[in-house]
């Protein structure tokens, strides 16, 4: 017998008496207001939050937020940047990106998380190799909790999907919290309603 059949055979022989699969409720009867909860969750996890004036130019905003940034790579049409993502043939070419710009497909209020998949990322590594990350978010795209999140169709269609909650972090040395352990050093969510289709 090959390993697969041996394992499945032993598993079948040893499986305990069947336990029924429960229904998982959505636990959404008393959800707090979505937007404030999202902001609080994001900030708790080390994310930053900027709400520009409705007419503000995002490219100008970016220049104020990161005046030193030399290489800006954007995966979203609202921001132009100076490193076209379309020119990237290998993920490692994004290593010199100072600021990556994305738009989240949706966000989760409960945890302060942003949903990003290869659709939003273009090249997945942009979310990790960039020194800093800016993520645009339309407040209308915030949903209540993780139960609602996992009911979203994106989890069934995306090749790669991440719930991103704040910048890369570690507390592995004496519990001292450090942002920018391996991936991005900062994550800034910028309020930006979606462009009309």
């Amino acid at each position: 017998m090959n390993a697969r059949d041996t394992i499945l055979d032993t598993v079948r022989r040893n499986q305990p008496a069947a336990v029924e699969l429960p229904v998982v409720p959505m636990f959404d009867a008393d959800l707090p207001a979505l937007w404030p909860q999202f902001i609080a969750g994001l900030e708790r996890m080390g994310g930053k939050f900027v709400e520009p004036a409705p007419s503000a130019d995002l490219n100008a905003l970016l220049a104020t937020l990161f005046p030193q940034a030399a290489v800006i790579c954007s995966a979203t049409p609202e921001v132009s940047g100076n490193r076209p993502l379309s020119a990237v043939s290998e993920p490692k070419q994004l290593d010199d990106v100072d600021v990556g710009v994305l738009r989240a497909a949706f966000a989760v209020a409960e945890t302060g998380s942003l949903f990003l998949s290869e659709i939003e990322l273009g090249v997945n590594a942009i979310a990790y190799l960039s020194q800093h990350l800016i993520c645009l978010l339309d407040p209308a795209d915030v949903i209540g909790n993780l139960h609602h999140a996992y009911a979203r169709p994106e989890f069934r269609s995306a090749r790669y999907a991440v719930l991103m909650t704040g910048p890369s972090a570690t507390a592995d040395i004496e519990g001292v919290l450090i942002h920018g352990a391996q991936g991005v050093r900062s994550l800034t969510v910028v309020v930006a309603p979606r462009l009309p289709n």
Binding site: T111, L146, A158, Y160, V162, L163, S168
Partner: peptide, 25 residues
């Protein structure tokens, strides 16, 4: 959803890990 809600809360007292990543394809 149930497990992600509990994992990091139980482990570190944070609502979720910074990155919860799903590799499908």
């Amino acid at each position: 959803a149930v497990f992600i809600r509990m994992l990091s809360r139980s482990a570190l007292g944070s609502p979720i890990t910074q990155y919860t990543s799903h590799f499908r394809q």
